[in-house]
């Protein structure tokens, strides 16, 4: 009985874990590569969803909506970067400001606080109408998209520009003396990060059949939880390992959540549980009096 309910959570965890894995990849770029605690995520996730949903109900093909979502997410991230680098606003506050601004922007885009997409054609409709268990094509789709983005990220982080971005997060002074404008690296990195997050939002809303202006709340914490879980298992030795850890962590996180729900955890308590999980993961090294905590961050 227990085992079968356990097994039944696997496909849904894979589907959601892969879809939200793109958020985790975005957070790897901001938190891990740039060492920038970017909270824009809670706003750029519903931004992506808002953009695609609005275009879909306006009768425009969802692929354009997805492209618009990526573009808007990129712009939102760049704005956070500009607030921090040009206006010298503390990185956490810059993210919070952007997140708050995006709440209004998202409502404007949607025209109301939620849009249902169950009765309209989305990017996933052709996959869901195939003559097989819906999980097979849907999981394949999210697997290909998420792994594709992981590979592109890995490749980018091994280019000259990617090196400069990694060095910006690692040793800003050093890469500046080597001739890189670290402000531009921060802005570009946050743009890419939030483009990923918005893409994830755009795909998740089509998968679940609705967009809601509040769907981004707690996204950053859930993403961090995913990264921490993944890194605990796979480590952070190379960039490839770090990005893989984010995706694996995201799947395991969704799995833990579904198990928790099956065991009677109230859905309303999810964010409490996730928060405690992250607090423990970040706090235990400090309690053990280890010199370095789990997060090394700039600009705070």
């Amino acid at each position: 009985m227990f085992l079968s309910s356990f097994l039944r959570t696997i496909p849904i965890s894979l589907e959601q874990g892969l879809a939200y894995g793109i958020v985790a990849l975005g957070i790897v770029i901001s938190f891990r590569i740039l060492a920038f605690p970017d909270l824009t995520v809670d706003g750029s996730f519903p931004l992506g969803a808002a953009a695609v949903s609005r275009l879909i109900i306006e009768g425009i093909h969802p692929i354009y909506g997805v492209m618009l979502a990526i573009f808007l997410g990129f712009i939102a991230g760049c704005f956070t970067g500009l607030l921090n680098t040009k206006l010298k606003i503390n990185s956490l506050l810059a993210g919070i400001l952007m997140m708050t601004i995006l709440y209004s922007v998202n409502l404007r885009i949607m025209g109301r606080s939620n849009i249902q997409l169950l009765t309209v054609n989305t990017l996933l409709t052709p996959l869901e109408s195939l003559e097989m268990n819906r999980f097979i094509p849907i999981i394949t789709f999210f697997f290909l998209v998420t792994i594709g983005i992981k590979i592109l990220t890995d490749m980018f982080l091994h280019t000259q520009l990617g090196f400069a971005m990694r060095a910006t997060g690692d040793n800003e002074q050093m890469i500046r003396t080597l001739g890189t404008n670290t402000d531009n690296m921060t802005i570009l990195g946050l743009g890419i990060s939030n483009a990923f997050v918005a893409l994830s939002g755009a795909l998740v809303c089509q998968d679940q059949g609705f967009s809601d202006v509040g769907m981004g709340i707690g996204m950053i914490v859930a993403g961090l939880a995913s990264i921490i879980i993944g890194e605990a298992l796979l480590g952070t030795k190379t960039v490839q390992r770090m990005t893989l850890a984010a995706i694996v962590g995201s799947i395991i996180y969704k799995f833990i959540i579904s198990i928790g729900l099956r065991l009677g955890l109230a859905p309303t308590d999810l964010k409490l549980a996730t928060g405690i999980m992250v607090v423990l993961a970040l706090g235990i090294p400090a309690l053990k009096k280890e010199k370095e905590g789990k997060l090394h961050l700039r600009g705070v």
Partner: peptide, 11 residues
Amino acid sequence: LRGKRRGLGWG
């Protein structure tokens, strides 16, 4: 690449 443009070539 000190002082040079950094592009999308391999690092």
